[in-house]
Design a binder for these strands. Structure first.
Lengths: 201, 201, 201, 201
DNA sequence: ACTATCGGGACCGCCCGTTAGT
DNA sequence: ACTAACGGGCGGTCCCGATAGT
């Protein structure tokens, strides 16, 4: 059906326009009217597809999370060797940045909303916990196989994620200040240098 | 001089009320009226002391930066041994969290505004650069003295800061998820384990 | 097409209400809220039809200018004999007063805005120049045909217009002080008495 | 006493600053704060000297009226011959423009307020009536002496005044459009050409 | 599915005027 | 006489959302 297609296209246009507006102006400052104008539709269309600005935001984030998940699964499937897998973590940050594209600062809005909005928080924390568990598991496998030293795997995973988050936010604030991709790999390498058993060095 | 004192008190009340409101509601959602009400003064008083909501925010941030700077200088003065100094970095995150107090999420607003507002960005980037230079210098001294391995000191400093920033933001989003202070120390220890020369281990 | 009609009606109601408010209270003192209330619509409707209070004012003036222009064209088409045409000028002031209706003082606002606002000035000066040119041409024809003495036609036109403007403003300030229509005719008669050639007297 | 002098100076500074602000921004748009700033004093000083913005405006106008009156009396005293006196009317407009100086548009505010404010109206109408009576008397003397034709002297005076008022407002709106002083003399000359008895030509 | 129109509300900024203090 | 600080309130603008209509 053509109608369905057209309808979905309108919805997508709104989502994309909203993403840009949210990234450039922030959630509060981005008005529904401006989003509609950017999408080239009327406000009626907006409220036909979404019950509120919040709802659109939520769906936008949901889509981003789905996108991220599939990207992560891809990476997970590709690599098989453990050291490679660990190092590939570095790329994940790169992936995240890539998914965000030029509208990186939308992440800040995610964070912002998550603090204030319980629903957003839960929607974000679940995938995040999975993400943490994935890393923790990866590290535990490494420890059991003796590749890396025994350590508090969850805490370590948090450290790695924190590094990633910190790099993301800094890159977001000041993209040109440093080659953030390089800094990421560099940081992980140092971390692992402290972790690898002497025998495996 | 009774008047002067009262005036400063009013201004301070506004700043503190604004800090709470910005932290809980965000910059945009926190209305000037609500800030005034929370401070127990009128709008007339507000616009007598500040030219705009933005201006108040700016001054708030400026004060926080000054506060942070003096705290850092204190830490710098206290420690003399290099390894201790390095490890004391861990406490800095703790300090930052402590300075932020219960209104931690004001940091998010700083970040948020910095991306959108050029003035805020510059006000933030200057102390940040100093912060970075301070760390870089610290690491270079360590390298020259042979305590830690030779490495790209600036990049390393960025890694450490990123770790701190990441931990801050995560703690901000989910304060109870982990003992962030511990994670910080833990992360730094691992980093340094990979850095310390074998001789000094 | 029911909607369209209703929309135009709303806009017209706003324009008419604004005209009354501007005339009675002046542009600044007339609040948008009061205009909306007088028009029986909401502020949402106001800003749907006009981008600002200024914009409404501008459109109001534009409509008045269009109205005036068509009135003038009517007069121009009716009269054929030159002396009659000249004397019909007297009626123009009357026309202007009639068009203004009971809200004469809106003219003062036009003038007021024109001094301060460049756009309003240009919107007013163009028709005014045409008006001046029309009079100048009329007088020149009269001079060439020998009905009236040779003179500086443009300056003469300015004198006539000034007389009209002065009468308008005085009538506006003090409508009951004199029969302004009579004064107008009287003034023009005297002017022409000094102009008509003896032969035509 | 020095104090008194200083006080008067402050008041004068406020009056002059207000005149400029009223002329450039209009009465409503000129804020008390901006007037005080322009005068270099605080708002307290303002309300020490004037009970309200209206009151200052009123006093400003009063002073202008006094100023005008003395100018007119001067002119009256100087000229003795009737035709000269009549022609000197032309200079009066020039005088008025000169008194107004670069802040001519203050006149518009006088007019504006006079329409809305009863007190202002009365304050203006009394001197105006005297002005009208002066002209009427002048013309009547001329008629009785046979210099000019018998006519409705009051109406004629109104015509002359209207011409002046119209020229004033036009010059105010568009000072560069014409040499308004010349237009004034020109207009009066034509008027009188129609009035002078043939015998006196 | 989508538009144009509209309602009602809230927010920032400003403004007039007052008062405590010097 | 003059200042700084402040109160209380209004005004233009915009914004979210709802609805009538197509």
């Amino acid at each position: 059906m053509k109608k369905r297609e057209q309808s979905q296209q309108t919805k997508l246009a709104l989502l994309e326009a909203a993403e840009v507006m949210f990234a450039t102006s922030g959630f509060e400052s981005a008005s529904v009217a401006s989003i509609c104008e950017a999408a080239g539709v009327s406000k009626g269309a907006f409220y036909h597809h979404f019950t509120s600005k919040q709802a659109l935001f939520f769906e936008l984030m949901q889509r981003w999370l789905d996108n991220l998940e599939s990207h992560l699964k891809e990476i997970e499937a590709q690599q098989t060797e453990l050291p490679d897998k660990l190092l590939s973590m570095a790329h994940i940050v790169g992936e995240v940045l890539e998914i965000g594209g030029p509208q990186l600062s939308i992440y800040l809005e995610f964070w912002n909303q998550a603090i204030r909005d319980k629903d957003v928080y839960h929607a974000l924390s679940q995938p995040f916990d999975e993400f943490l568990a994935f890393f923790t598991g990866l590290l535990e496998t490494g420890m059991e196989s003796g590749v890396i030293k025994k350590a508090d795997s969850e805490m370590l995973a948090r450290v790695i994620i924190s590094l990633g988050v910190g790099l993301l936010f800094q890159g977001l604030l000041d993209p040109g200040a440093a080659d953030w991709d390089k800094v990421t790999t560099y940081g992980l390498n140092i971390l692992f240098e402290g972790l690898y058993n002497e025998s495996s060095t």
